[in-house]
């Protein structure tokens, strides 16, 4: 069975696969990359997206079997180096001159959400780079090359090298993660079992431990 999953899901889904004892291959990448691959005919059994937009694109293209179900939510957080050496406490601090801020590209869900959050906070940042997936933002902060980046809460929870600065609800964006089986799935029963597990209490508690909010 092949699962195409948003890059941010990797820590949680690796644990779920271990518990489920199912022989699954995971393709983790930016949601927009996965959607493009699936639209071009890539074979997969399950698609777990970091936004509803890309799921809807595939749904409209007739590639999804049944109705997608939202299985988790995620929020944004500012990732900074452990100890927060630059003293970053809010989105407004990201506009400080001399600060190296990295965001995900606006074509990536995390990048789109980051733009929305910055707009809500009325903050203009000049990013040093627009990374092709949210995990690349995290690694630039973890490597010390960037002072701050906007990532998901779940990314911060599963990384030992960064800490999170919370973004208040009034400025934050809630990301919905929908999951669905694909029409051309070769392993229908495994796909259904995987989706059922993700939605069941066991799967939900793994997701919660990885920093997601339950559906």
């Amino acid at each position: 069975m092949t699962v195409f999953a948003a890059a941010s899901l990797q820590p949680a889904f690796d644990k779920i696969a271990a518990q489920l004892y199912v022989d699954a291959t995971f393709n983790y990448a930016g949601t927009q990359t996965l959607a493009a691959q699936l639209a071009q005919g890539a074979e997969a059994d399950v698609f777990a997206s970091a936004d509803k937009t890309h799921m809807k694109t595939l749904l409209d293209a007739g590639l999804i079997a049944g109705a997608p179900q939202v299985f988790a939510h995620n929020r944004l957080e500012i990732a900074v180096a452990n100890g927060n050496p630059k003293g970053i406490h809010s989105l407004a601090d990201l506009a400080r001159p001399g600060l190296v801020v990295v965001l995900a590209d606006p074509s990536v869900p995390a990048g789109k959400y980051a733009q929305q959050a910055l707009a809500k906070a009325n903050v203009t940042v000049h990013p040093a780079s627009l990374e092709p997936q949210v995990t690349a933002v995290l690694s630039k902060v973890a490597l010390g090359e960037a002072d701050a980046g906007i990532v998901y809460v779940s990314d911060v929870v599963t990384s030992q090298k960064v800490q999170g600065v919370p973004i208040p609800d009034s400025q934050n964006v809630v990301a919905d993660y929908p999951i669905a089986a694909l029409k051309n799935a070769q392993h229908n029963s495994n796909a259904e079992a995987f989706i059922a597990f993700v939605l069941a209490p066991d799967g939900q508690s793994i997701l919660k431990a990885a920093g997601f909010e339950p559906a």
Binding site: V102, D105, P127, A128, S129, L130, E131, P132, K140
Partner: peptide, 12 residues
């Protein structure tokens, strides 16, 4: 390039 220099229109 994308790993070392990042991705910013006009710069990298």
């Amino acid at each position: 390039t994308i790993t070392f220099a990042g991705n910013l229109p006009g710069r990298t």
